[in-house]
Design a protein around this nucleic acid. Structure first.
Length: 281
DNA sequence: AACGCGCCCTGTCCGC
DNA sequence: TGCGGACAGGGCGCGT
């Protein structure tokens, strides 16, 4: 479900409401969601008594900065939601996996229908090691045209797949990969290393633009995604290709096509995004 | 080492 | 109405 814009929206919502609070108790109803440390007891003990200093985002993860240099990293998978129990939408949750009781009487809930989401608790050292392994942050200063070109030129996987690989570039998922490629006029199945320097630079600009526009719209909601207050986003109305198979391309009118690449759908305009080879870099 | 694929799990929708 | 299959915004672990 959630890609960078959705996770950013959730993190901002929580950042306005939980920093300064202390975790007084943890209830783990679905142990498979806890990925680190190995035991649920160690997770509970590690979280209990921690004060939440900050809530931010790293890639597609919500990052809770705790005291004592600890970090709680939450990957929402496809259907994960984080919200406080005082939000009206909290009453409708049917798959609460973890509860964090806070010192002001509220409870932070993690709900996840499919349980693809995972939580990891790090100490300072563990976090430094994990943090170093993330790919490029697309909205960060590190995302220079040269940096993206270095990534694309090093692999022959379809460019759509490369954009989904969190070891190379973080935050982009299946929706925004299709959208950014369409806006850049690059076919999703093209080998990454076949992109010209000009195409890579365009792609860099369009990734940043579409992610920022989606953040401004509060994210994309098809069914599951909600922000920290339980509200839907609005970017689904501005998608140009994702989920629009058979509809006319907004740019040229040609019918949008869907192609399955590595078991996941890619949407593109066959006219705007021809599958011709670019010059080798 | 890099890459493709199956799989994790639940819900919804569509065709028959 | 029921049923089987396809599909869903993600990512891990496996074999090659």
């Amino acid at each position: 479900m959630p890609e960078l814009p959705e996770v950013e929206t959730i993190a901002r919502g929580l950042a306005a409401r939980v920093p300064g609070r202390r975790v007084e108790g943890v209830t783990v109803r679905r142990p498979d969601v806890i990925a680190r440390p190995a035991s649920r007891r160690a997770f509970r003990d590690g979280m209990t008594g921690r004060r939440i200093r900050e809530v931010t985002r790293r890639g597609k993860n919500v990052l809770f900065v705790l005291d004592a240099g600890m970090r709680l990293l939450v990957n929402l998978g496809m259907t994960g939601r984080l919200l406080l129990d005082d939000a009206p939408a909290a009453r409708g949750l049917g798959h609460v996996a973890v509860r964090f009781r806070l010192d002001d009487g509220r409870t932070l809930l993690y709900d996840d229908v499919r349980r693809f989401g995972r939580m990891e608790l790090f100490d300072a050292q563990g976090w430094a090691e994990r943090d170093a392994r993330f790919g490029l942050e697309p909205l960060g200063e590190e995302m220079t045209p040269e940096a993206l070109h270095a990534v694309t030129s090093a692999s022959r996987v379809p460019i759509r797949n490369l954009l989904l690989d969190q070891d190379r570039i973080v935050g982009v998922g299946n929706i925004y990969a299709s959208e950014a490629l369409h806006r850049s006029r690059v076919h999703p199945a093209r080998p990454a290393s076949s992109l010209t320097r000009a195409e890579t630079h365009r792609l860099r600009d369009e990734i940043r633009a579409v992610l920022q526009e989606a953040i401004d719209a509060g994210g994309t909601t098809f069914s599951d995604y909600r922000n920290a207050s339980g509200e839907a986003g609005a970017f689904q109305f501005r998608l140009r290709v994702y989920g629009r198979e058979g509809e006319p391309c907004a740019h040229c009118g040609t019918a949008i096509e869907r192609q399955v690449i590595s078991n996941r759908s890619a949407f593109f305009c066959p006219a705007c995004q021809p599958h011709r080879r670019g010059r080798r870099a």
